[in-house]
Design a protein around this nucleic acid. Sequence first.
DNA 1: GTGCAGAAATTGGTTGGACCATTGAACCAC
DNA 2: GTGGTTCAATGGTCCAACCAATTTCTGCAC
Lengths: 243, 243
Amino acid sequence: MTDLLPPIQTTARDDAVLKALAGFVRREALGPGEKLPTERILAERLKVSRNTVREALTRWEGLGLVERRQGSGTYLKAAVSPDMLHMPLTLAGGNDFAGLMATLEIRRALEAEAAALCAIRAGKAELAEIERKLDLMEEAFQTRAGMSSDEDWEFHQAVFRASGNPLFEQIIAAMYEMFHRFWEHPLGVRDFGHASFPYHRTIFNCIAARDPDGARAEALKLIATVEDDLKRGAANLKLSDRR
Amino acid sequence: MTDLLPPIQTTARDDAVLKALAGFVRREALGPGEKLPTERILAERLKVSRNTVREALTRWEGLGLVERRQGSGTYLKAAVSPDMLHMPLTLAGGNDFAGLMATLEIRRALEAEAAALCAIRAGKAELAEIERKLDLMEEAFQTRAGMSSDEDWEFHQAVFRASGNPLFEQIIAAMYEMFHRFWEHPLGVRDFGHASFPYHRTIFNCIAARDPDGARAEALKLIATVEDDLKRGAANLKLSDRR
DNA sequence: GTGCAGAAATTGGTTGGACCATTGAACCAC
DNA sequence: GTGGTTCAATGGTCCAACCAATTTCTGCAC
């Protein structure tokens, strides 16, 4: 009963532009990295002002679907389709220890679930991809004698992708970014993340063995080590300088 | 080694405008529903073109932070702060059963964790608030002989708030909105959510008894009933009309 | 004074045209 | 090849005007 009879749209130029553009992308089968028509061309073809085109593209840019490079052009950054659903999530950033712990609690919940789902759903190709990332990570660990956050993150991303639910990757990416925003040096803990290393392999083993509950349990252990590192770091911080 | 030497930013007019505006909102202590200065005023004060102001506001509008009403003004729709993190979530081809299930999987993970944390952390006042919402929900259930999604949602929100982690509420709210966007009628299932009713009380009991594992288990059962309803709905849909 | 229709002012939405800043390719001297 | 220079293409910004929806004011009838 609530919103039947939605308000009619007498004007919706921007949306119309985006709809047309999404259709264009589909027809031309454009993928990430490919170049869109220039703003001037779009304005002319769609019979709208270039300014309107720009507002529409600004929306897509804000959604991370598109990247504009001055002097070069506008490029697709993600797959777009006419029937996408957008859900902007804005997080009030807590720039303190509590904020970090908050992101970790979200990670704990999602990471465990994703690992479990992955153990159920991952196909052969995805399993191989996860193992490849795992090997890369372990190699980096040997070489540099410590955790490499890039390879580590790629491993986790591969797991999220294989979970069959794109939301996992997107949401945890937000947590990850939030986590790294005020964490250039991990609060003075030198071997941050070191303890988490072995659990990557155990998680993979559970996934490969199609053992959801095991994968969930190992993921929880992994997050627990990170939480522990964080708490140690907070203790260090409290000792050294209280800004 | 990865991203030292980040690309320098020579111009960032839009961002500068938004930063200034966020500062303004904070200084004036503006909250949701309140009116922002007009585009013309902003352009004049910030010494930028009105066009630039519009592109900046378009970004905020796309993020759902602001609402523009022609002839009236621009109004705040959510709390904004200078240190927000924006994470637009996009679900490709979300208008189908798979999209609904995707949001539910996120809910399953977060809802269980939030309930467990709540059982650990909720204070007396928060506990009372949750029980109040529970009573309201049960009353509405008796009166209307069915689940009321408003009261139901308020109960869950109260739990998230008492979890001590604001991210739970924010993220699940986004899932909730996405869920309801293509779910006017619950796919032909008349008593949608009916089966979930008793678990609200059992969740609360576990929380009040400080039993995190129990709360988690009951929350999982609740989500399971919703998933079940959803699957029944999908089956109905497949039988009736295949558009 | 009250109520209400119509005028006027306000405000976001759109347009067209102009110019600036950056990019990338073509070209040239060495 | 290397390193500059030129030049066209492209996104970024600005301006001035007008359109469309909304709000506010005005003045008249009662």
